[in-house]
Each structure stands twice: as structure tokens, then as C-alpha cells.
Amino acid sequence: MNKCMSLHEVKAVFRDGMTIMCGGFLGVGSPEGLVRELMSNGAKNLTLISNDSAFPDSGIGQLIANKRVTRLIASHIGTNPETGRQMIAKELEVILVPQGTLAERIRCGGAGLGGVLTETGVGTLVEEGKIKLTANSIKYLVELPLRADIALIKAKRADRAGNLVYEKAGRNFNPLMALAADLVIVEVDELVDCGEIDPETVITPGVVIDKIVVSGGY
């Protein structure tokens, strides 16, 4: 099966109202080319799941600045003043999730788990509306899985089967999101033939990757 597609072809997959996960931490490890295609496609009323909302002029921050997102699930929005402004003006619904809880909720979504128990957020606003339970005399919150229609992720290198290797701190949420969406598209710097990546070094196995796009074209 040929998983490779051009950046131009990616545009056709986006629809209004979709839930989209996007890898990256303050733009590092973010699939810039895929986000550009989503920007130019014009899809709106999006629910976006990402660690943060980056900066107003880069990465997924542009989607916020262009009012394409109606609901954002993230751990941190402080680097994009536009996100805070839209939230306070009630133009954008922002659901803030502790970063480790966000990672685990996405992991659960991709791993077939019904949720996790965590102490994080107990005694804070984060516990509002959540199931709480006590086990082994410790109070926990029940945090439920997150999934998306599409995950947009970034890796350094893929082989044609979709096996992925990441680069430094660019890994972050990408390997978790790779399992947690109905359609998973990876943008890579480099595409190689099968056999060229040592199987011992593969971080994300190719079976979870649906489409591969090479940065800057292909």
C-alpha cells in the first residue's frame, strides 16, 4: 500500500467541525507543512487538541489567530496572547488540561484504555465535574481518553511503511497522537526505503501511520 501523498493532496481531508490533534511543543516537533494545508483549506469550527497554542504567527497558533478553532484542549496558552484574548472574550472555548494528564488521556485514546487515575489536579479547578475515587487511601481523578478524527504529527524520518524516528525534543506528543486518531498523517523531513531504518531504533511502528508527506513537497 502506498502511504505517500503530496502536501497538495492533504488539503482534501479536512472538513468543518473536525477534531484534530497536532503534535509539537511550542512549535518544536510541529508539522508546519500540514498545518499550512489546513490553514489554506479553510476548514473551520475545529476542535484542536495540542500541548499549547504556540505563537500567533507560527504553527497551530495561526489557526487560532484566524478564528478557525472553536474549542481548544491544551495545557498551556501563555505564549499566544490571541488565545487568551479569545478565551476571555468567549470567542473560543479553552479546556486546560495538566500536561501529564493530557499526555495520558491521548495515550489512553490510542491504547484502548478507558482512562487513568491520577492525583494531578486533586484539590484544584481541574477536578470539577470529574469522577473522583479513593484507592489505597489516595484520592484520584478519573481522566478519560481523548481521540481525534485526524492526527497531524511530525517526525524526522519515515520509511515507506511509516516507521518513524523523531528528532530530539521534537518527539513530545507525536508518538502518542500517532495512535489516537482515525486518520494519522505524518510530515517528515526525509523518506527512505523499507530496511533503511534499523528496526531497533523505530519509535512509532508504521502500522499506525496512514499517510506520509515529505516537508516541502514530494
Binding site: D52, A74, S75, H76, I77, G78, G84, M87, I88, V94, L96, P98, Q99, G100, T101, T118, E119, T120, G121, V122, T124, V126
Partner: peptide, 21 residues
């Protein structure tokens, strides 16, 4: 250390997990 309601809401990032763990 993560929000001033109605004014500034940067978000908790990793701070809640760090202080818990």
C-alpha cells in the same frame, strides 16, 4: 501559579503534575 481569573490565564502546563509527583 497558573491563572488570574478574567485577566491572565497562561495555563498550568506541567506544573500540576510536577508539584504532585
Amino acid at each position: 501559579n497558573w491563572m488570574v481569573p478574567g485577566k491572565r490565564v497562561p495555563g498550568m502546563g506541567g506544573a500540576m503534575d510536577l508539584t504532585t509527583g
